[in-house]
């Protein structure tokens, strides 16, 4: 609760800075996903695709980023018993430490339904993302690493942790358009007691506006 309050206060403090935004962008994406799920020693591998959207408001010093995805993953030898409806989301505020480095903090959540039951991961994360220019205003790369500051999973909730990474290439589709394309690789691993889930995605995103 205290954490949520602190985050809300931090977001409120940074929003005016983000409000005087230098730019913003919106994107939609599709992401084939591979989920390695380990529960009490048994493992399963699920695949599927999620779709979603994202938006970033970039201020002079602070940024705000929202990310949402939804889709289905299922075991390959699908008997219909292990098909999951997946919902994921992030809400982050960032501090632009240098021109190429931004530090982020905020919650990331991943929930899925499994038959009648549902499972929800909530992790408070700290992130560092770096960008490098290959061709000015045409092509750039990015790498983002994150670790969980705290987290919980299930009901009743158990303490959870995790870490992840995201990296890829962003390419302006043509010099006359504000549309960019992104090819990214994303991996995150969450764990709690005898529970561990690793999610790998290859994201293909179309972005309107200059990516941060």
């Amino acid at each position: 609760m205290n954490r949520a309050l602190a985050l809300a206060l931090f977001a409120a403090a940074t929003l005016p800075g983000a409000a005087s935004a230098q730019h913003w962008n919106l994107g939609v994406f599709g992401a084939p996903q591979i989920v390695h799920s380990h529960i009490d020693g048994s493992s399963s591998r699920l695949t599927g695709t999620v779709f979603g959207g994202e938006g970033t408001l970039v201020g002079e010093r602070f940024s705000v980023r929202l990310w949402y995805a939804q889709g289905n993953v299922a075991e390959k030898s699908d008997s219909g018993l292990d098909k999951r409806l997946v919902v994921e989301g992030e809400a982050l505020v960032g501090l632009r430490a240098t021109q190429w480095l931004t530090l982020w903090v905020g919650p990331t959540a991943r929930a899925y339904t499994l038959g009648e039951t549902s499972q929800r991961w909530l992790l408070w994360t700290g992130r560092a993302s770096a960008r490098g220019t290959l061709l000015p205003d045409r092509m750039q790369t990015y790498v983002e690493l994150w670790g969980a500051l705290s987290g919980s999973v299930g009901d009743p909730s158990a303490k959870a942790g995790g870490r992840g990474a995201d990296a890829g290439l962003e390419l302006r589709l043509s010099s006359q358009t504000p549309l960019w394309g992104r090819l990214g690789y994303r991996i995150e691993s969450s764990h709690a007691d005898a529970l561990r889930e690793t999610v790998e995605s290859i994201t293909v995103t179309v972005i309107y506006g200059f990516p941060q």
Partner: peptide
Amino acid sequence: IPGVVAAGAIIVVPNLVA
């Protein structure tokens, strides 16, 4: 350099993260 660093991160980091 940014291309090589990002490519290296994509190939190496999964082993560290998971």
